[in-house]
Design a protein around this nucleic acid. Structure first.
Lengths: 219, 219
DNA sequence: AACCGTTAAATTGTCGACAATCAAACCATT
DNA sequence: AATGGTTTGATTGTCGACAATTTAACGGTT
């Protein structure tokens, strides 16, 4: 069902995914140190695969590493969130514009079908599917841009950190239903091949999300 | 002299830098396979540090890796260049805008001083310093944006691939002197704190560069 | 008591060997 | 001759041990 099915093949893969999820969901606290020995014991693998996993976590900005010292989970801050979302706004705005130009008619149909199915879950109030649904929506537009560089930057690079902020700061309140309307309008602009409007709406949508999250950060 | 002095501390660092330069400069051909055993022999280090280096090359998009198969140097193509420059235009355009807003007066002075020193070398016709100088100019503006996320994305992430295209396709001809004028106008806009103009000029500057490079790719 | 050099413990970096996996060569069958 | 399965060689993945480095504790000096 998910747009980006990633299937682990090697032990380092599996460990990377598990570690990543644990960091995103706060099982491993933000800012905490990652001891290679501890992790090797906890995940029942050798230090070599832990090192490989950490290396990949670093390349998606979830941990920071210093030579001969070790790796730390990133620290969540207001400044970090602002800068992250500033870049996200530019990149996903561009993705929406390109999606309006490059998505196939079939992909556009599937996008609106996705929104219809979301509409039901929104009314029923299932927060879990809301989270996953929002992700799926954004992923499809990013993939619809057909720009491999952009896709990698966002999906392999920035999105896990974005998710980390969202999951750990929570994303509830009246925001949810209004976000759904914003999604619908973006999808409509794409269906009309209105690239300029799609970009503008996407940028605003992300800006709203940012403001919503900023209120929950003291720092 | 260079804005981004990176000093290798560990053996994996050194190997990473050497490998990276060899790939960017075409000593290791684009599209060729990277054998861990061969590289370990050539650079006189163990396979572990080669693996670490390759892992880091992957995160700056210079090599592509497939589990249980191995790593290949990226293939240079017209489509790849277009997509890369499409993203570059958006990100560096944003960097120029933010630089106009956030650079200190001192940094702006240093930027124009840099241009003056470039002016001499341009007249003397030293191509090597032109290359390095262009890099330095762009780096200062990126750093001037003061957005850590943006800086990492560009300098640690995309710029080595950008350099690879430029170095391997060559960047000579009448382009050089006109590029200098474009740099000067961008610096002027920043000095005037004209963010909108700075972004626009930077985007155009990059677009010109792209067109210049595209003519040299058959693919 | 504060400061500085030394030492010791813990952590990361590096290595060589072994296990698992893949790609190509090979052979048999149709 | 083309196809499919098997085997073999080579390459990558994983492991545990050792070396190098950092950090913290310790002791001596001012």
């Amino acid at each position: 069902m998910n747009s980006v099915a990633e299937q682990p093949v090697t032990a380092a893969d599996k460990t990377f995914y598990r570690l990543r999820d644990d960091i995103v969901e706060g099982v491993i606290a933000a800012g905490s140190k990652l001891s290679e020995a501890d992790l090797a014991a906890r995940y029942q693998v050798s230090r070599a695969v832990i090192r490989e996993a950490i290396s990949r976590l670093e390349s998606c900005y979830l941990v920071e590493r210093r030579p001969n010292v070790g790796a730390k989970v990133v620290h969540l801050s207001k400044a970090g969130l602002s800068q992250l979302y500033q870049v996200r706004q530019a990149l996903e705005g561009m993705a929406a514009r390109l999606a309006a130009e490059n998505m196939t008619a079939i992909e556009i149909d599937e996008l609106s079908a996705l929104l219809s199915s979301h509409f039901k879950t929104v009314k029923s109030g299932e927060t879990y599917y809301q989270e996953a649904g929002d992700l799926d929506f954004h992923y499809r537009i990013i993939l619809g841009s057909k720009n491999a560089q952009l896709i990698r930057l966002l999906i392999n690079g920035m999105y896990h950190l974005i998710r980390m902020y969202r999951v750990q700061l929570g994303m509830a309140g009246p925001r949810v239903t209004t976000a759904f309307d914003e999604h619908r309008n973006i999808a409509l602009a794409i269906a009309n091949r209105d690239a300029e409007l799609a970009e503008m709406l996407m940028r605003r949508h992300i800006q709203y999300t940012e403001h919503n999250l900023l209120t929950k950060l003291i720092d």
